[in-house]
Structures are given as C-alpha cells and as structure tokens.
Design a protein around this nucleic acid. Structure first.
Lengths: 225, 225
DNA sequence: CACAAATGCTACCAGAGAGTATAAACATAG
DNA sequence: CTATGTTTATACTCTCTGGTAGCATTTGTG
C-alpha cells in the first residue's frame, strides 16, 4: 500500500494534468484547516477543564461533528495534546529566535526578546498553559521532544545573557540559571494573565520588560533604550 | 516502609493501653495521623501523575489498605485534592506571615520573606505544585476558598512592597502588580526545582533572594544584606 | 446518470475507576 | 466469654469515555 501510494505521488508530480494537482493541493489545504480547527477547539477545552477531564465527544460537539471525525484526523487523544504542547513551546521559541536575529546590543536584544515572547505567550495563552500544566500527561517520547524544545529556548536565552555579561551590560553571576528565572517569569504570564482582567496585555508586557531588565541590571544602575 | 498495613502501624503506637481518657484522646490523634498519611501518599501520586490520572485504588495499594478505607476518612476524591491544594497555599501563607512578624526594615523583611517562603515551597513542592497545576479540577466552592488564600498572600506581599516604596527602599511603580511577579517567581520554583538536580535547594533560595532584591531595587543601586 | 472514492456518521465495545452495600474482623466493656 | 460498637475488607454497581467496525452519504468523474 505504501509503495503504491508513493508511486502515485510521483506520478502526480510528473504526469497528471495541472488541474488534478491543483485539486489535490486544495484538498491538502482543507485537511490542514480541519486539523487546525480541531486543535484550536481542543485547546479551549484542555485549557478550561484540563486534558484528562476533557472528552473528545465534547470537542466534537463544539465543532458540530462526531468523535470518529476527529479520529480520522488525529491518531488519538494524546496526539492532540502533543500538538498543542508543541505549538505552545514552538511559538515561543520562534519568537525568541526572531528577536535574536535583530541586530543590537545585548540589552536591546533582551528587551525585544521579552517583548515579543511575552506577546506571543499572551496571544497563545491556551497553548502555552496546556503545555506547562499537562506535560505529565504526554507519552514519554513526546515529553522528551517537548523538553528538548524548552531546553533550546533556555540555552539560547542563556547565551544572550552570557553575551551581555561579557560586554558588561548585565550583572548575572550565572547566565544559565538566570535564564531559567527569566523564562519562568515569562511562563508565569500564561498561568496568571486573564484577558479582560485587571491589567491589559500591554501593561503586562511592559512590566515583564521592566522586571527582566532589573533582574540583569548591574548594581551601579544603567539605562538602556 | 509499608510492608505492614497502616492499621498495624497504628496498633504499634498503642502498645500500652492506658486509661479510657488517654485512649479516647489517642483515637483522635490516630485518626488525624491516618488522614495525614493518606493525604501524603495521595499528594505523591497527584504530583507524579496528575489528579485525574491517579486512581484511589493505587493510593490505597501504596498504603496497604483498600479504597473503602480512604472513603471512611475522606468524603471523596475531590476532598483529597482540596486538602492538598489548601496545604500548598496555606503553608506558604504561614511562612509569609511569620516572616512579616520579624521586626526590620522593608528590605530586611523582604529578604526573610523570600528566603522562608522559597524554603517552604521547596520542602512542600508536591503540595504547591498540585495546587498550581490542578486548580481547575477543584469544585467551584473549594476553588474560591483557595483563591481567597492566594489573594491574601499577594495582598500582604503587596503591602510590604508598598511600605518599602514609601520608605524609599524600593523602586516599584505598582506594588500590587509587582507582588504578583514576585509571588510568580516563588511559585515557579515549585514547577521547576528538581531534588537532586543540577542545583541545590540553597542555591535556588539564594538566587530567588537576589532576583527579588533586584526586581525592587532603586536604579541608583543599593547593597543587600 | 452511473460508478467509484472519499468522507462522515450511527452504533457499539471494552476497560477503567469512582463510589457503595454488606459482611467480616476486631476492639472494648461488662 | 459474650455483647456491642467500630473499623476495614470483599465484592460488587454503574457510569463514563477512548477507541472502532461498518454503514451511509456526499463528491467528483466520465
């Protein structure tokens, strides 16, 4: 079956008329869209009720489909959880890497990092919160992949702190441990922020920037953009 | 450790039956002890596997008793969760209040607060983590009580920051919001610390103190101690 | 329109686990 | 030793839900 399918794919690329390929492409997009919708709705339930307490029947009902529909797009409930967790940490990591690609001093980069990651975390609170809360429910193999992503995040952040330390911009006695405090502060946003609550997203982001800047600031004090 | 039934362990404690009075008093203590042991074991499972994924049968097995035994000491599974969450936040609150009762400047008090609360959180990581992670699983009424305790904690911490702000020791533009960052930093310890891991409890506590001091430190700089 | 392929649904199962009725075991009193 | 109340275990029930087999329906094609 697999070799047949593969042969068909190759045939598509080489022989079949453009029309068919376009149709096939559209189909893929639709499939991807359905998967996204399922994931989005599932993340709402996992966020609100927890992973174990959420039934796939309720997710299906919310989407006006049935449980077997979900099972035709995801292997099982655990795969849904994995994709949600993966989204949560991957988005944060992407934001970090983008911010790091902006040229600037360590201080300038750190400010951009905190700003962008904090924003991403607020915008994708559901995914990040589920990732932080339901890690224990992941299959061991999935858990390892997620931990690797997290480790990459912390390592890149630590490298930035290290750079700032060497340039004298930051006063951190132990960059990799400080990185964990900083990423913890960012994670905390997801667990605590409440949309429409006492404080706006912008206030929270600006506060986060201030807190992180103070955490790495030399005792002599210094002001940076 | 648990090779004998819990009931037998208790019998050992009663080896020399005294007068009725003493026996009656002992009974209460024994009941309290049994409840504590059940709670302790349950917290291990909730911490390791999550609340929903933990079966009371497995908790009973660990204690060498049976499920109905647990049900004769707790109304239901939710009551166990509530007591664990309650323990987690109440211990932190107690530590905060004790620290606040020590005379001293705002800076001195803050240092003691962070030190003691951080220690308590590390020592009672299971309870604190379950509280932070499984809040959503609580009955609405229980959840409200827990939130009230948390609110008390944040409020008292905010009052200390406010005091330090007025005395000029701290540079915080918004005490109650800063309090949330500080309590978040403390909570983060429970979610991240791993006994026997890369860093010792003492290192983590000292790091926490440093981080919090920097977070509230006036830009002009000041030396801690 | 006919036929094929994909897509989705109805109806079910198996297992698990929260919670309980009831009986046994045990302690205590007299 | 017997009567009585308490403590704990045996042996269930009943519901809930992840997962599936197989049928129905829609869609695209010639």
């Amino acid at each position: 079956m697999h070799t047949t399918a593969l042969a068909t794919d190759i045939a598509d690329l080489m022989d079949k008329p453009k029309k068919k390929r376009a149709a096939a492409q559209l189909k893929d997009e639709i499939t991807a869209y359905k998967r996204r919708r399922i994931l989005e709705e599932a993340s709402h339930f996992f966020f609100a009720n927890g992973y174990e307490a959420t039934t796939l029947d309720s997710v299906a009902e919310q989407l006006n489909v049935t449980k077997p529909f979900i099972y035709s797009y995801y292997k099982n409930k655990g795969e849904l959880l994995y994709e949600i967790c993966q989204t949560g940490i991957q988005l944060s990591l992407n934001a970090l890497e983008e911010a790091l690609s902006v040229e600037g001093t360590a201080s300038e980069q750190l400010k951009i990092v905190v700003e962008r990651v904090a924003r991403i975390i607020i915008e994708n609170q559901r995914y990040v919160t589920v990732y932080l809360r339901e890690e224990k429910c992941l299959q061991p193999e999935d858990a390892r992949r997620i931990r690797d992503l997290r480790h990459t995040f912390d390592t890149k952040l630590a490298a930035l702190l290290e750079r700032g330390k060497r340039s004298g911009e930051f006063d951190v006695q132990h960059p990799s441990r400080t990185a964990i405090w900083v990423s913890g502060l960012l994670s905390w946003i997801a667990l605590w922020y409440h949309e429409g609550g006492r404080w706006s997203a912008t206030e929270v982001v600006m506060d986060a920037i201030t807190m992180v800047q103070k955490m790495v600031q030399p005792v002599g004090g210094s002001k940076h953009g």
